[in-house]
Design a protein around this nucleic acid. Structure first.
Ligand SMILES: [Mn+2]
Ligand SMILES: [Mn+2]
Ligand SMILES: [Zn+2]
Ligand SMILES: [Zn+2]
Lengths: 141, 141
DNA sequence: AACAATATTAGAATGGATCTAAAATATCTC
DNA sequence: GAGATATTTTAGATCCATTCTAATATTGTT
């Protein structure tokens, strides 16, 4: 067991500090909710509701600010699955997703499982930032 | 040259009729704009502006209605690349996309070029509806 | 403690998308 | 073609996720 395992919040907070974000009460509470229980895919509204349920009142504006700052700092990844709603993913590794359209539930495909081949030549001056793969599921007919 | 080549609007309109949609003036005009010049990826706002520029005034509500009806009828495919905006794709074949994030421009990857392997087992009662792949490009550092 | 920098917040504003319900148009029946 | 019926179009209202504003609060520094 490493020190990181024993203090699961230490690493994100270190990265926060390195990103120039002060460890405020709000950011600490949201960090605990986000990173306290394994990989998650949450919307801003969901996280806001969770904070309220945990008796930690934080404004929706701060939830959005924090999620966007964390994303810019590389602590989170934004996943867009349908127009008008985005999920924030605590798993920032290079992985892909399965979306059950009917329920809106999003799950990870383990890293290294799914592979993409035959990516076309990229125009001069540009490079691949990321490849997003979403496997969309529907009820079997 | 086949008859379909000579009458490029005939096929979409036939499909429209088969889908139970009356060929109204608005739907005809939008069909011409959508399918008149090769594969396209347009937003509702864009199409609305194009109609206005072509001196065919149509309400934004009708543009949305039409795009959604066409999508349900299989004439168009909806592509979600960023939260808050969706594109309608006149290419309904099984293909993938390259997104230049900085400009928002979306281009097709030719069918058969890009391949996805290692899709995980799908839970009982569900099946793959579609696999969306978006190659996101950024300026080279 | 004093000060400057940064963060939080309520509420307003934005913008894409959908809804409403009344007027217009298309199709059907005779 | 006339009249009846079904569908479509439309302006404007409404929705809803997200961002913005600008006033207040907290944080880090000296
Ligand atoms: Mn964002
Ligand atoms: Mn839609
Ligand atoms: Zn994920
Ligand atoms: Zn396409």
């Amino acid at each position: 067991m490493t020190i990181a395992d024993a203090r699961p919040f230490a690493e994100p907070l270190d990265r926060l500090k390195r990103a120039g974000l002060r460890p405020t009460r709000q950011r600490l509470a949201l960090t605990r909710l986000l990173f306290g229980r394994g990989d998650r895919h949450v919307s801003a509204e969901q996280l806001h509701a969770e904070a309220k349920a945990a008796r930690f009142v934080v404004s929706l504006a701060t939830v959005y600010n924090t999620l966007n700052q964390f994303t810019r700092a590389g602590l989170l990844r934004e996943v867009v699955v349908e127009a008008g709603r985005s999920y924030f993913d605590t798993n920032t590794s290079d992985h892909h997703h399965v979306l059950t359209v009917a329920t809106g539930s999003l799950t990870d495909i383990p890293v290294g499982t799914l592979a993409v081949s035959g990516v076309p030549k990229i125009p001069e001056g540009l490079e691949v930032e990321r490849i997003d793969v979403v496997v969309r599921l529907r009820p079997r007919v």
